[in-house]
Amino acid sequence: EVTIKANLIFANGSTQTAEFKGTFEKATSEAYAYADTLKKDNGEYTVDVADKGYTLNAKFAG
């Protein structure tokens, strides 16, 4: 089991951190699915991958 950390950075400057656990593939998929649920209210996002894929920095356009 691994933990994927998602740093969510919103256009207004606020941030949120979420963690997803499971296999690498499952946890990564859940992190992206969570970011997708936030698109409606926060706009499209881009992701910078860090820490060999164990940290995802998602920046929302607003």
Rank of each mutant, 00 (worst) to 15 (best):
A33D: 08
T28M: 13
Y32I: 12
T28E: 05
K26Q: 14
A31V: 08
V47G: 02
K39P: 01
I9D: 04
N42Y: 15
T46L: 09
V2N: 03
E19M: 12
T15S: 11
T37M: 14
F60A: 02
D51T: 00
A11N: 08
A31W: 05
K21Q: 10
N42E: 12
G43Q: 01
A58W: 14
T3L: 09
G43H: 01
Y34M: 06
A27C: 05
G13R: 04
T23I: 07
G13C: 10
K26H: 11
K39R: 12
S29P: 02
T46D: 07
A50P: 04
A31I: 07
D41I: 12
G43M: 03
G13M: 06
V2G: 03
I9V: 11
G53H: 03
I4V: 10
Y32K: 07
A11E: 08
T15E: 08
N12M: 04
E44L: 09
E25R: 07
D36P: 00
N12V: 03
N12H: 06
T15G: 07
G43L: 03
A27L: 00
A18W: 12
Y34V: 03
Y45H: 02
E1K: 09
E1P: 10
L38N: 05
K59P: 03
E19G: 04
N7D: 02
K5C: 10
D48S: 14
T46Y: 10
Y34H: 07
E25C: 11
A31G: 03
K52C: 15
A33I: 08
G22A: 04
D41W: 12
Q16P: 01
A31L: 08
Y32A: 03
A61E: 13
F20W: 05
N57C: 07
A27S: 06
Y34A: 03
F60S: 03
T3G: 03
N12L: 04
E44Q: 10
D51I: 00
A50L: 14
L8P: 02
A35T: 07
S14F: 13
N57Y: 11
D41K: 11
E25L: 09
T55D: 05
A6S: 05
L38S: 04
V47C: 06
K52G: 15
T46A: 08
Y54L: 14
D41L: 13
V49S: 09
A31T: 01
E30A: 14
T37D: 10
E30R: 08
G53I: 02
A11L: 08
E30Y: 06
V47N: 01
Y54M: 11
L8S: 01
A33L: 09
V49F: 13
N42F: 15
K52T: 07
E1A: 10
V47A: 06
T55A: 04
T55Y: 05
K26L: 10
N12W: 06
F10T: 04
A61D: 12
E1G: 08
V47D: 01
K40G: 11
S14L: 13
E30G: 05
E1W: 14
K21N: 09
T46Q: 09
G13E: 04
E19N: 08
A50G: 11
L38Q: 08
K5D: 01
Y45N: 01
D48E: 15
G22C: 04
A35N: 04
T46R: 08
D48H: 12
T28P: 00
A33T: 08
